[in-house]
Computed example of a mutant assay.
Amino acid sequence: MTSLPAELSKVVDVEKPSAARVYDYYLGGNCNFAADRELAKKVAVALPGVNEVARINRAFLGRAVRYCVKAGIRQFLDIGSGVPTVGNVHEVAQQLEPSSRVVYVDNEPVAVAHSELILEDNDLAEVVHADLRDPRSVLESPHTRALIDFDQPVAVLMVALLHFIPDSDRPLDVIATYRDRLAPGSMLAISHVTDESLTEGMHRLVEYYASSANPVTMRKRPEVESLFSGLDLVEPGVVWAPEWQPEAPESVGPAPENSGIYAGVGLKS
């Protein structure tokens, strides 16, 4: 991407890297700018497998969505959805169950604008420009209220999101606000980077992202498990992302810890 539509140029700082746009670059997208690419390339030197890490995370998202659909859930709230790419939630869910309804949420204007474009002809999917840390703006958005019935089970997706929420923003309290709104049978899917593997590279990643719009907070496995407080963890619990309900044993690979990502799904009983 070399330029922005006029309506976005006033609100998007293309000189400051954005996590959503950097992630788009990792996945091979083109909704990113020079500053995003520069950060991504620096990270790739310190963490040579970062593109594969992004793909592993995206694969977990797909498996989690399919799990939720097969469990009977027909409503999805994808918070921190990012720039649309292959395997979007509505594509995965509606392929299995065409009646599935999806609300995407992101605070990155470029991600929201591109989501609006791809959802123009889909009456069962919408995008909300809001921040996870302002639950009211997410839960009470007209788009959310039009598509999501919180008296019925909802799958809330916070995939590769919460490591951008520092402890000072009280992520457990924020998550609790969403959890308390959910009906029994709802699920919460989370993936989160950690420095318990690829330690040196992850520390450099934190260093590089510190100057971006979205600094990173690393968390250990017990801290990631605590994000599911009040929920029952679905088997196999919080594990390395490739280990979460793999489609085939061989897809886990010989070193799942090299994903650098913990992942899990919690059920509200």
Rank of each mutant, 00 (worst) to 15 (best):
Leu119Gln: 07
Leu124Gly: 12
Pro135Cys: 04
Asp123Cys: 00
Leu147Met: 14
Arg145Gly: 00
Ala130Ile: 13
Ser115Ala: 14
Ser115Tyr: 00
Arg136Asp: 14
Phe150Leu: 12
Arg133Leu: 15
Ala130Leu: 11
Phe150Asn: 12
Asp131Trp: 04
Val154Ser: 07
Val154Phe: 12
Leu157Glu: 02
Val110Gly: 09
Glu120His: 06
Arg136Ala: 15
Phe150Gly: 08
Glu140Trp: 05
Pro135Gly: 08
Asp121Val: 03
Val110Ala: 00
Asp131Phe: 01
Ile118Asp: 08
Leu139Ala: 05
Ala125Asp: 04
Leu147Gln: 13
Val110Ile: 15
Val112Tyr: 04
Val110Arg: 05
Leu139Thr: 08
Val138Leu: 12
Leu132Cys: 06
Val156Asp: 07
Asp123Gly: 11
Leu119Asn: 05
Arg136Lys: 13
Pro135Ile: 06
His129Gln: 13
Leu157Tyr: 03
Val128Trp: 10
Pro142Phe: 10
Arg136His: 10
Ala130Val: 05
Glu140Pro: 03
Pro153Asp: 04
Val156Thr: 07
Gln152Tyr: 00
Ile148Ala: 12
Gln152Cys: 02
Ile148Tyr: 02
Arg136Cys: 01
Glu126Tyr: 08
Pro153Val: 09
Ile148Ser: 05
Val127Gln: 03
His129Glu: 14
Leu139Ser: 03
Pro142Ile: 10
Asp123His: 02
Ala111Arg: 00
Ala111Pro: 02
Ala113Trp: 14
Asp121Phe: 08
Arg136Ile: 13
Val154Ile: 14
Ala155Lys: 03
His129Met: 06
Asp149Lys: 11
Arg145Asp: 07
Glu120Gly: 01
His129Thr: 01
His143Tyr: 10
Leu117Asn: 08
Asn122Ser: 12
Asp151Pro: 00
Asn122Arg: 14
Asn122Glu: 15
Val154Ala: 12
Val112Cys: 07
Ala146Phe: 10
Leu139Val: 10
Ile118Ser: 00
Ala125Gln: 02
Thr144Ile: 11
Glu140Phe: 06
Leu117Tyr: 00
Val154Pro: 11
Leu147Asp: 06
Leu139Glu: 05
Pro153Met: 02
His143Gln: 15
Asp121His: 14
Leu132Arg: 00
Val112Trp: 00
Asp131Asn: 14
Glu116Ile: 10
Pro135Val: 00
Glu116Pro: 06
Asp131Pro: 05
Ile148Val: 11
Pro142Asp: 11
Ser141Val: 08
Asp134Phe: 12
Pro153Ile: 05
Leu119Ser: 10
Ser137Phe: 00
Ser115Met: 02
Asp121Tyr: 10
Pro142Thr: 11
His114Asp: 06
Pro142Ser: 10
Val154Tyr: 02
Val127Phe: 00
Glu120Met: 08
Pro142Lys: 11
Ala111Trp: 04
Leu117Thr: 11
Arg145Glu: 14
Arg133Asp: 11
His114Val: 08
Asp134Thr: 14
Leu132Glu: 01
Arg133Val: 15
Asp123Ile: 01
Ile148His: 05
Ser141Lys: 04
Ser141Arg: 11
